[in-house]
Nucleic acid binder design. Sequence first.
DNA 1: GGATGTGAATGTCTTCACAGCT
DNA 2: AGCTGTGAAGACATTCACATCC
Lengths: 206, 206
Amino acid sequence: MGKIAESTVRRLSVYLRLLEEFAAQGKGTVSSHELAGQGHTTPAQVRKDLSFFGSFGKRGLGYPVPELIAQLRDILGLDRPYRVAVIGAGKIGRALVGYQGFVSRGFHIVLLYDNDLDKVGVSWDGLQVRDERDIEADLAREPVDIAIVATPACAAQALVDRIVTTGIKAILNFAPVEVSHPDGVVVKNVNMALELETLSYALRNR
Amino acid sequence: MGKIAESTVRRLSVYLRLLEEFAAQGKGTVSSHELAGQGHTTPAQVRKDLSFFGSFGKRGLGYPVPELIAQLRDILGLDRPYRVAVIGAGKIGRALVGYQGFVSRGFHIVLLYDNDLDKVGVSWDGLQVRDERDIEADLAREPVDIAIVATPACAAQALVDRIVTTGIKAILNFAPVEVSHPDGVVVKNVNMALELETLSYALRNR
DNA sequence: GGATGTGAATGTCTTCACAGCT
DNA sequence: AGCTGTGAAGACATTCACATCC
């Protein structure tokens, strides 16, 4: 299959959410127009996005909701559970552990770390905080698919360097710093201050 | 000034962070190559991004660090403080209040709301949780620049509808749902499950 | 020499428009 | 008639390459 744009993948995730709402309402089929929502994208964009992966609709009718949900889950790789480790038991780590939106998508946080020994051993939502020094040993025994880095910026690069040695292939980085990493490891950044800064820019020019 | 791509604005934010690190190290000038970092973008991209707003560098030398910081802060609208309201005092709201990265950028969370009366009146980091029913009255008295929605998906649209009536112009939405809103209001979505889903897609194809 | 600034070329993504199926 | 699927066109973003200046 050809290379798919990141923007397309993000929209597929959005379509999946919308489709689940339509399914909950008992809708059997939806049109590209309905999936485009209230101006967030266009019907043509929806059809193009889906067409990269196959022909899921029926002309004159639209797309069958349950089948398209199954297809999108398959395309996005959500047809299986993921084991996730959260590194950093500060406020962000606290918010991530027990966040409903993860479990319902098959992302299970199974390990939680901090370097503060006062936190080690404490349980949050049934998950015990572990000693950050044990990361390599733990991940060797019970590998995870994804690591979420939720530490201060100054600690992030060293931790990324350590966890990539364990063979991890995907990292979600909440630390407000660009981390370098080997090819073959996918890193996505979530930077809340940066989002506010784009809002600031948007406000400035209006 | 012409319209600037969102991707450009996001990179400017990243450059600003890097520049502040260089400034802390006492560096007086940086080249586009240094600002491009370890492969996150290219020197040509850096120069193009900056050139949309002016000529800040000196040929043969590079860019003066303190001046470029001042310019970027000005361009991004970070040369003044912002008043921010957080709506939803759950785990995400908790993480946002007191997040250091906001204050250091001039984003001051001055109001915090929840609809759970057990939480109303409680103080977090010196900020008292207010009754969600008072939002309109409070914002009329003490307007804010940006609202952060950190509620469950089901509550988000109704709250957005209410706060746009107060004249707010920018919303950062953490609820995992696309909200509709009038033109003239800028809405940015941060959806952590969606980020994990793009990682899932990336893992699937390798 | 060394690095910027920028038009031109290239590459990527989105939108159009219509053939083709139901 | 209605809506999908898709090449082609258009818009947009990135990269190139070189003239320009310190």
